[in-house]
């Protein structure tokens, strides 16, 4: 393999996200396996100090441009695309996050490289291949890539963030922004979420309802159980999108990351975007009518059955 491994970093308010460190860890493994260098791209304004704090890569490519101070879905992606065109890395790793979803396909298209999404592992031996999740985690797929270069949008948890922190001191290379500043897209403001009535990240017991709960009225039954257990109710994204529970109760990629003692999932399928927010819980108990539900892959205990049959039984026993 000739080109380097390039990690597209992600940062907000002066810190790199965990997803970045996971990719650096994965990138380091790939660089070692293929005998190439690990590079990281950092795009933003006044980011040189931050770039210098990265310990894992051999080299950090910094594009410092006041016009790119806040993440710009077009501007940042154009800048990295130009970098990719110029340096021809063999593997480009992009986090499967909100910013990565703007960047990965943009870079792949501009660089005319294949894109592999929902990627959970990459094998550089014997041509490039990867393993991905499809159908919201219900199916695993092996894919091979034509040619020896590609862009990968990597799922959370593909490698350990701790292994991506590193303590080296990489070369820092400053590169003038080779692209524009976001043609057609202008950042205006960032908004923090409003505080909720409870903080689900500090609760020990979460009774978590997914679309299997079927209606807003049925949530009361889950609340009753949660109360009997001294915990609170949390939810998957569709429940929040329906307006049945506030955003502050949402677990997952675009919600909160939790690690309670007990996580009782009722009618949650276990899509990768949900799992990344709860896989560290100490005891995960999942209830689902579908024996193929991917939540059973992350659970410690599972029961295949109807949550509406189980809920009253549990509540009875606790009264």
């Amino acid at each position: 393999m000739s080109g380097a491994i390039l990690v597209v970093t992600e940062h907000l308010a002066g810190s790199f996200t965990d997803a970045t460190f996971e990719l650096l860890a994965l990138g380091r493994e790939l660089a070692t396996d293929t005998g190439t260098e690990l590079e990281a791209a950092v795009v933003g304004s006044d980011v040189s100090d931050m770039a210098g704090s990265l310990g894992a890569p051999d080299r950090v490519l910094v594009i410092d441009d006041p016009a790119l101070e806040s993440f710009n879905p077009v501007g940042h992606a154009d800048a990295v695309s130009a970098l990719v065109a110029d340096r021809e890395p063999s593997i480009v790793l992009v986090p499967y996050t909100s910013t990565g979803m703007d960047m990965a396909s943009h870079i792949a298209i501009r660089s005319d490289l294949p894109l592999v999404s929902y990627c959970q592992s990459i094998d550089p031996a014997d041509g490039l291949s990867a393993t991905c999740q499809l159908y919201a985690g219900k199916v695993e797929a092996d894919v091979t890539i034509d040619g020896d270069r590609a862009v990968f949008a990597v799922l959370a948890g593909a490698a350990s963030a701790a292994n991506g922190r590193g303590d080296g001191s990489p070369d820092i290379e400053q590169i003038a922004n080779p692209a524009g500043s976001g043609g057609g897209t202008v950042f205006t403001e960032l908004a923090e979420p409003e505080a909720g009535d409870v903080d689900i990240t500090s609760e020990e017991v979460l009774v978590v309802v997914g679309r299997g709960i079927e209606s807003e009225d049925n949530i009361a039954e889950a609340v009753e159980l949660a109360e009997a257990l001294g915990g609170v109710v949390a939810a998957s994204r569709p429940i929040v999108d329906q307006g049945w529970l506030p955003k502050t109760r949402q677990v997952g990629k675009s919600g909160l990351t939790v690690a309670p003692k007990v996580y009782l999932a009722l009618g949650v399928s276990g899509a990768p975007e949900h799992v990344e927010g709860m896989r560290e819980a100490s005891t995960i108990i999942a209830v689902n009518t579908d024996p193929q539900a991917p939540i059973f892959g992350v659970a410690h205990y599972g029961w295949v059955g109807d949550l509406f049959d189980l809920l009253p039984e549990l509540t009875d026993r606790l009264e």
Partner: peptide, 17 residues
């Protein structure tokens, strides 16, 4: 004017032509 969601309820607004 669009709202893009980052994570943990953080959102950003953009003007898109």
């Amino acid at each position: 004017t669009i709202t893009k969601e980052y994570w943990a309820g953080i959102t950003a607004s953009y003007e898109v032509s």
